[in-house]
């Protein structure tokens, strides 16, 4: 059973001028349990549309999807999901503590469990101190962190995060990455959208690239990085101790190595020079 299974999901809108806009064109994706999956695409690519379909906020025009085997049309599908909306907003007349308890209740947690978990997640996200303040007094970053607290409170199996890093300062970003890596350690599935390639490179197992509603690529992050190797920066020392730095093309490496052996060169360092995720992404999208 996949954590998230998407089959031919399409979504089109009618604009005010009665033109049809296809936001998503037959997307199919399988996301394994226990993997961190990055959903990469420029603004307006269809990332949020996909996620909103999964969360039952909008109805797909065609196709189907399920979460842990449960069809997304049913509210039950969301029982094992923690969802962070893009630029989240919460009932601003409640305090963080009240809101999280409300969320806990909606997930059928016992009041004791909820109270314990509320304390844990608020501490984790550094919101324990202002927990009694009304949300309307919170800064944008605090609201974003509250959103993450809400995602974590019932310790679900699947995490669907829409732009989790946006609106956060570098400290907050580091915290989010830490949380995602911790979830990965605990074999949870994390599916998050982003347009920042660096985030994907750091935390994801796999990545999908989407643009203008089309799925462009799905691959393991390590494969992409490997395929991206263009050549090697080699630092070699000759017998007389002279150090030289060379660039060797990928396909020339075997012959180069042979050559060094012949010339009795000592190789001090070989580093792959590769296109990073950003280059990969830009190349795909520009195509």
């Amino acid at each position: 059973m996949y954590a998230v299974e998407i089959r031919g999901l399409s979504k089109s809108y009618k604009t005010k001028k009665l033109r049809t806009v296809e936001a998503l064109k037959g997307l199919s994706l399988d996301i394994e349990q226990g993997e961190v999956f990055g959903f990469l695409g420029p603004n307006g690519a269809g990332k949020s549309t996909t996620i909103k379909c999964l969360m039952g906020l909008i109805r797909p025009t065609a196709g189907a999807a399920s979460i842990l085997g449960c069809d997304i049309a049913s509210p039950q599908a969301r029982r094992q999901v923690g969802y962070l909306p893009e630029n989240p907003a919460f009932y601003d007349y409640l305090s963080a503590e009240e809101y999280l308890r409300f969320v806990g209740k909606m997930f059928d947690m016992s009041p004791e469990d909820a109270a314990r978990r509320v304390q844990e997640v608020l501490n984790l996200l550094e919101l324990w101190e202002p927990r009694k303040r009304l949300i309307r007094t919170y800064s944008k970053g605090m609201v974003q962190r509250l959103g993450l607290a809400q995602v974590l409170i019932h310790d679900p199996e699947v995490y669907i995060l829409d732009e989790p890093m946006s609106g956060l300062d570098p400290l907050g970003r580091a915290l989010v990455k830490e949380i995602i890596l911790d979830l990965k350690k605990r074999r949870k599935c994390v599916f998050f959208s982003t347009h920042i390639t660096d985030d994907v490179e750091k935390v994801c197992d796999r990545v999908a690239v989407i643009n203008k509603g089309d799925l462009l690529a799905v691959d393991r992050v390590e494969n992409i990085l490997e395929r991206g190797v263009e050549g090697y920066d080699v630092t070699a020392a000759s017998a007389d101790g002279q150090v030289q730095e060379l660039f060797v093309h990928k396909e020339e490496l075997p012959s180069f190595l042979k050559q060094t052996l012949d010339q009795k060169l000592a190789i001090e360092k070989i580093e792959p020079r590769r296109k990073n995720m950003e280059a990969f992404f830009l190349e795909l999208v520009a195509r």
Binding site: Q76, R78, V81, P88, A89, Y91, V103, M106
Partner: peptide, 11 residues
């Protein structure tokens, strides 16, 4: 105010 996103997505 987009409260629905966070609430409707609950089970």
């Amino acid at each position: 105010r987009r409260y629905t996103f966070s609430v409707i997505s609950l089970p």
